[in-house]
């Protein structure tokens, strides 16, 4: 017997979970924003908001890439290390080898994309689980970064290198936000309206079914990780410009923040369902919590604790709802 528990259910938790998925996150964003503006006069200052949105842009772009990987039932734990590696090689290209800035950025993004593609290739062709390949990637790319740069700090970049992370149109609109928005629109289009997005979702939703109808699992696995790598490359450019200095210890912990942004945004951790818009909202939420704690003078380690709890809750609620509905 099938019992529909869904929207007619009197069960508050199920309704809560559903509501959360259908825009509850946007309400939460408004509430957190309002709360922060009342609690701290610093929150709504121009400098703080620019700092906030720049952070959203970096995490948001990485998380959009992560959305494609998770849509294909994967997980990319290597993102932070790939961002750090890419930022550092961009820095050395432009400073040590005097490669023109435009070419440097291009090379950096291409290299990051290739790293992602290699991860996807290893997962698809060799059948090594996603978790193993990207956990290894987390270690390997961080290892290379330390090997090449050790304790070095490379700083003071030219305007083009700094453009993505530092430039503001009309002195207020950060270039990073424009890049995030453009990336979000394109990614949404790819996810919803192209064969690429549809097939990544299909291999994530049901690998057997997708292979049966002739969808090439390896190709779409590889492409999903390549998109994540590409996003890491762009994020590295923004990060470099925002800090105007790079070192080996950059971008630690991006894997958790990006995965959290994806699942808070309503995508399924188990593939098949994904929302790019939701991911950006998730990134905004994470960034606001972080920002609030910073300006509130709360011990920053609380950020890690809250983020961890938020991640577990975001995965638990939809999974729990699904179990109830399937009953």
């Amino acid at each position: 017997m099938t019992v529909r528990v869904g929207i007619y259910s009197s069960d508050l938790l199920v309704r809560g979970a559903r509501l959360w998925q259908r825009g509850g996150i946007y309400l939460a964003l408004v509430l957190i924003g309002l709360g922060l503006s009342f609690l701290s006069p610093m929150f709504l200052t121009r400098l703080n908001l620019i700092e906030l949105v720049n952070y959203v842009a970096i995490i948001g772009i990485v998380a959009i890439g992560q959305t494609f990987v998770i849509a294909g039932r994967g997980i990319d734990l290597s993102v932070g290390s790939v961002v750090a590696f890419t930022a550092c090689i961009m820095a050395t290209f432009v400073k040590d080898y005097s490669i023109p800035p435009v070419l440097t950025v291009l090379l950096g993004v291409v290299i990051a994309t290739c790293i992602g593609a290699v991860h996807g290739f290893l997962i698809g062709r060799l059948g090594v689980p996603d978790l193993v390949v990207t956990l290894a990637g987390l270690e390997v790319w961080r290892g290379f970064t330390y090997l090449l740069f050790e304790e070095r700090v490379i700083s003071r970049f030219d305007p083009f290198m700094r453009f993505a992370g530092n430039y503001r149109f009309n002195d207020w609109l950060p270039a990073a936000v424009i890049i995030l928005l453009v990336f979000m629109v394109i990614a949404t289009g790819i996810m919803k309206y192209t064969l690429l997005g549809r097939y990544i979702l299909a291999i994530g939703g049901n690998r057997k079914a997708s292979e049966y109808v002739g969808i090439n699992y390896y190709r779409y696995k590889t492409l999903s990780y390549a998109i994540s790598g590409f996003a890491c490359g762009i994020a590295a450019w923004i990060l470099l410009g925002r800090l105007n200095a790079v070192q080996s210890s950059l971008a630690v912990g991006y894997e958790l923040q990006s995965v959290a942004a994806v699942v808070i945004g309503g995508s399924s951790l188990f593939g098949g369902v994904a929302s790019v818009m939701g991911t950006v909202a998730g990134a905004l939420m994470i960034a606001m919590i972080r920002n609030g704690l910073l300006i509130g003078g709360v011990n920053f380690y609380w950020y890690m604790i809250i983020l961890g709890i938020l991640l577990v809750v975001s995965v638990a609620l939809p999974a729990w709802e699904r179990r109830k509905e399937a009953r």
Partner: peptide, 13 residues
């Protein structure tokens, strides 16, 4: 694909 609607499944591949 359980996460897809009937139309998407009908045209899968």
């Amino acid at each position: 694909v359980e996460d897809f609607d009937a139309v998407s499944n009908l045209f899968l591949g």
